[in-house]
């Protein structure tokens, strides 16, 4: 405790209260939180992939149809193209945002939206096709994991598209307010993340599924 007597501090040299009038950076705080949310979403997919790994042995399909009998890699590649060009369009949205180009942002969002809808349409068509062939998730544990993993990804895509619709309205109504810019940046994270997850779905569910 020697400091209290022998090492007295000059009060004028000590900063006790914040004088910087700093304001917390709303967009940065928000983006950080969204990164955290994406981390929890990544865990959801990680657990689903783990379940798929456990349930993708041939005996998990209970002598019923396996992905090798119905997966068409060409069709899934079309889905990949649709989703990746959608992400590219969203990238152009971000370039336009950086330049403050409202019309560019809106057309980029439309592009991403339409290509995303194309992806989702291909996915729904695929599910309808499979169900039509009598391949449903309640046939076997392996098919349960196959359907739930792919359709959880599709559900994320659906929410992303809904979000894009909302952003189209908000950009035209509010312009580039801090809220809108923050949401556009979060949506960028979300959309890129779904594309990354799709890479894993494509490789580990569809391509590897062809070997089962």
């Amino acid at each position: 405790m020697s400091s209290s007597t022998s090492k007295a501090l000059d009060p004028s040299s000590v900063e006790l209260w914040d004088h910087s009038h700093h304001h917390h950076d709303v967009i940065s705080t928000r983006t950080f939180g969204f990164w955290l949310y994406m981390l929890s979403d990544a865990m959801i997919f990680a657990v689903l992939f783990a379940a798929w790994e456990v349930l993708s042995y041939s005996h998990s399909f209970a002598a019923g149809p396996t992905p090798a009998s119905f997966v068409e890699p060409g069709y899934v590649f079309l889905q990949t193209l649709a989703l990746f060009t959608s992400v590219l369009a969203y990238g152009f949205t971000m370039v336009a945002l950086k330049n403050g180009n409202k019309a560019g942002v809106i057309s980029g969002l439309w592009g991403a939206l339409i290509l995303g809808v194309a992806f989702l349409a291909l996915d729904i068509n695929d599910v309808v096709h499979l169900v039509g062939m009598g391949i449903t998730p309640d046939l076997s544990g392996g098919l349960s994991a196959f359907f739930i993993l792919t359709q959880t990804h599709a559900l994320h895509i659906l929410f992303g598209l809904l979000w894009m619709l909302v952003m189209l309205v908000q950009v035209s109504r509010f312009g580039f307010s801090a809220d809108v810019v923050g949401r556009l940046l979060s949506l960028r994270l979300f959309w890129h993340f779904q594309a990354v997850v799709w890479v894993f779905v494509f490789v580990f569910v569809y391509l590897r599924g062809m070997l089962i």
């Binding site: 379940a51 456990v54 349930l55 005996h59 998990s60 399909f61 209970a62 998730p137 309640d138 046939l139 076997s140 544990g141 392996g142 349960s144 994991a145 359907f147 739930i148």
Partner: peptide, 18 residues
């Protein structure tokens, strides 16, 4: 939930569940 509502086989005793 999927097992109980949709009849999937994630954790059932048969049909490939674990």
């Amino acid at each position: 939930g999927f097992d109980r509502y949709l009849g999937t086989h994630f954790f059932t005793a048969g049909l490939g569940g674990n």
